[in-house]
Write a protein that binds this DNA or RNA. Structure first.
Lengths: 336, 336
DNA sequence: TTGGGTCATGAATCCGGCA
DNA sequence: TTGCCGGATTCATGACCCA
């Protein structure tokens, strides 16, 4: 018996999330900005339109996609601090008619991101523990469950809320490969040895000692220092502190330490890293610092302003330019 | 517009998971064992039948249910160590025709557990990060999403596997209340303050200082010692070590430290704690030690042997006895 | 240069007040 | 009655100052 598929159903569920897709030319095309060397791009406009442009121009080109969509909180998010004083107050609107509508919007983006992934590529979707489950079931359908790689738990610390329940102090990131049969990008990371291990073994490598018959005797330590233990799927990383220099004033900003782990382990230098929900531009900034190429996009002024300033600060100044196709032509002519 | 419900669908999905339910008298009734004071019970047999008996006898009586079903791994689990040498080798069979079949079986148990919960009660379902998402979507439907309380992440440490991926080092527990409008059981737990907090503030409570105009100034510390920070939903607890005294030889045994947190925070002394998948009997043992009453159940000899021995070791010897109804009659007569 | 003390302020949740 | 809004709660943490 073949396994019966498990699917999420809701009324008026579209048959095909890519309908009204890449073939459709939209009235409003996104504005394109790029660094002078073309190793970084920002599109301003609805990310669905931007993704469609990319799918047309260069499918299969992305090694790593990180997606941090709104979490279906029903709230409008406002800017803070200096950014708020500059007059831009609304960052993004996270109100949806129902969860099904939210899920449909996400699904439309996911199928396009999948088209953009290279065979060795993978996508990481950042969600919260109230929505992650719906996203996982949806992604099992869209990507195939055999391509599910990890549920990564981001554990942070914050001031406690008054509640008769355990404090909610984690987010969830789901990683899927484009194709599990292909060897994907992987640069191993290590974390500190557990305190109990350090107490018993110190920081040298352990090695099991086996006798001639293959029976395990005791373990010993080697001369070699241990690199630590291979990184697990629960990450203890602080939120961006209220007074941190890293802080931009854009709400729900993700820490660079978090993105560093993702970008370092799941892409190589020179790879294209995609983030369809740029927000404050953390993914692009981290990718650039780590020698990756980036393509990111967002709707509205708050994000564009923050991303442009942030990237300019690390030497990735964005200029408004021609479309991708046109810039490629220019490049060819210049090279000839 | 009312929100469109999101549901899991699969072919031949039953309309009603409680069909063939409490009304049906089964050919094989579970064997009942109880402590002499009646504060602890074990049923041997299919837990569906045992749950049905309980639903008939005392619905709404349970304050806390902990469920640790098989994780749909497709494997047969064998006993280890001393238990294996005693001749009982198969602990449980976790092979299912497909995930839908597994989910149906779980759903049948969940609807019965829900019947057994008191209005102030809650249920904790222990799953792994490949199945938790399906269970959450199912439980949102069965319990109502407004009754979802927590996704608790159990982070453990183990010998690293060789894999081009982040090490899987966590399980997931989903907690739902029977009725969020009712004040549920809640005994707060605390964990250590963050090192950075201790360095800056010591271990005294912080208090914000606000001036006459309501503007926030700096914070101060109070005289009062902080109890620590209210427990979060990510728990760092070691697995039961291969050489631990706690170890029974029953596979996938859960640590008592884990159950202690659950039982302490989510039930009061004297409350009934239910575990439909007894396994090695950790829930019953912990509940008993903490002064709760327990009712637990499992199929087969491996579990019965381990549970009986384990409970006898802490003064909760189980005797085979009459049905619950009959024992109640005996009790009344004795009291008269 | 380093390290300790001081400062500023976000975030989730509940609760009370008011419409 | 219900629903929205503002206030209170009180850890966490990088930046800054100064010795």
């Amino acid at each position: 018996m073949t396994p019966r598929p498990l699917r999420l159903s809701w009324s008026d569920r579209p048959v095909d999330f890519s309908a009204s897709g890449p073939g459709v030319v939209r009235a409003e095309r996104p504005r394109r900005f790029a660094t002078q060397d073309g190793r970084g791009e920002f599109y301003e406009g609805d990310n669905l339109a931007s993704l469609d442009e990319l799918v047309r121009a260069r499918p299969g080109s992305v090694s790593l996609a990180y997606m941090d969509p709104p979490f279906d909180t029903g709230r409008v998010f406002e800017t803070q601090g200096r950014l708020a004083e500059s007059g831009v107050s609304v960052a993004y609107d996270d109100r949806w008619s129902d969860r099904a509508a939210w899920l449909e919007a996400l699904a439309e983006r996911l199928v396009r991101v999948r088209e953009l992934l290279a065979p060795h590529g993978s996508v990481v979707v950042h969600v919260d523990p109230r929505t992650s489950h719906y996203v996982k079931v949806l992604m099992d359908e869209l990507f195939g469950e055999e391509n599910f790689a990890s549920e990564i738990v981001w554990r942070y610390r914050r001031w406690p809320a008054k509640t008769r329940n355990f404090q909610r102090v984690h987010d969830v990131m789901l990683r899927y490969r484009k194709d599990a049969r292909v060897e994907g990008r992987w640069n191993p990371l290590y974390e500190d040895l557990a305190p109990s291990t350090k107490a018993t073994w110190g920081t040298r490598k352990q090695r099991a000692v086996v006798d001639a018959g293959g029976k395990r005797l005791r373990s010993t330590t080697l001369e070699e220092e241990s690199k630590g233990v291979p990184m697990g799927d629960v990450w203890d990383i602080g939120v961006v502190a209220p007074v941190a220099k890293e802080r931009t004033g854009y709400p729900s900003q993700k820490p660079e330490a978090l993105l560093s782990r993702i970008v370092t382990s799941l892409s190589n230098e020179g790879d294209w890293v995609l983030d369809p929900y740029a927000g404050s531009g953390t993914t692009a900034a981290v990718a650039w610092k780590l020698g990756r190429r980036f393509v990111t996009m967002d709707l509205g002024e708050a994000s564009r302003a923050v991303v442009h300033e942030r990237l300019a600060g690390i030497g990735a100044t964005l200029f408004e330019g021609e479309s991708y196709e046109k810039s490629q032509q220019t490049r060819k002519i210049a090279a000839a």
